[in-house]
Computed example of a mutant assay.
Amino acid sequence: MDEVFKDRDDYRKNIIIHELGHALGLCHKADRVNSALHMATNSKSAPTAVDKANYMKLWG
């Protein structure tokens, strides 16, 4: 990942946040949901309120 995205720190950060969401048990979200787990154009640099609510549903 470092070699492919070496000049794209923002993109790497988004990928890491997205994959961390999966590690915490979160799944991909539909197009209209504001989430770091959104598939098409993930430009979230932090978990959103939707992500936090879904985390709380899973883990309390």
Rank of each mutant, 00 (worst) to 15 (best):
I16F: 13
T48G: 05
A30R: 10
E19G: 02
H28Y: 06
C27R: 09
C27N: 09
W59T: 08
D10S: 14
C27E: 12
L24N: 04
A46G: 01
H22A: 03
L26H: 02
H18W: 05
V50N: 10
W59V: 06
V4D: 08
K44P: 00
I16W: 10
D10W: 09
K57T: 05
K6M: 11
M1Y: 11
Y11H: 13
G60D: 09
M39S: 11
G60R: 07
M56I: 10
L26D: 05
I15P: 01
M1R: 11
T48K: 03
S43N: 13
N14G: 08
V4G: 00
K44H: 15
H28I: 01
K6A: 13
A49D: 12
H22G: 05
D51S: 03
G21E: 04
D31W: 06
R8Y: 13
D9A: 15
D10K: 13
A30Y: 02
T41M: 10
R32W: 08
M56F: 04
V50M: 00
L20V: 14
H22Y: 07
R8P: 00
M56D: 12
A23D: 05
P47T: 09
Y55H: 05
S45D: 11
E3I: 10
A36G: 07
S45E: 09
K44A: 10
V33P: 00
D51L: 04
G25W: 02
V50W: 12
P47S: 06
G21A: 04
D51F: 02
M39G: 01
Y11S: 09
A30V: 01
H18D: 03
G25L: 04
T41N: 15
A36K: 05
G60S: 11
H38K: 15
D10P: 01
K13W: 09
F5G: 03
K6D: 12
S43H: 08
A49Q: 10
T41W: 11
S35M: 04
A49H: 05
V4Y: 11
A53D: 14
R32F: 08
V33I: 15
K13A: 14
L37F: 01
H22P: 04
A49N: 07
D10Y: 09
K6S: 14
D2M: 11
V4P: 00
A40V: 09
L20R: 12
L26P: 03
W59E: 02
L24F: 15
G21V: 06
T48N: 06
K29P: 00
S45P: 00
G21D: 04
N54Q: 10
H18Q: 13
I16V: 15
R32E: 10
A46K: 11
L20Y: 07
L26F: 04
K57R: 10
Y55W: 09
D2K: 15
Y11P: 00
E19N: 10
F5S: 08
G21S: 05
A30K: 14
L37W: 01
R12P: 01
K6I: 11
A23W: 04
K52I: 15
K52F: 07
W59D: 01
H22D: 04
M39A: 11
K52Y: 04
M56P: 00
A30P: 06
F5R: 09
A36S: 15
K29S: 14
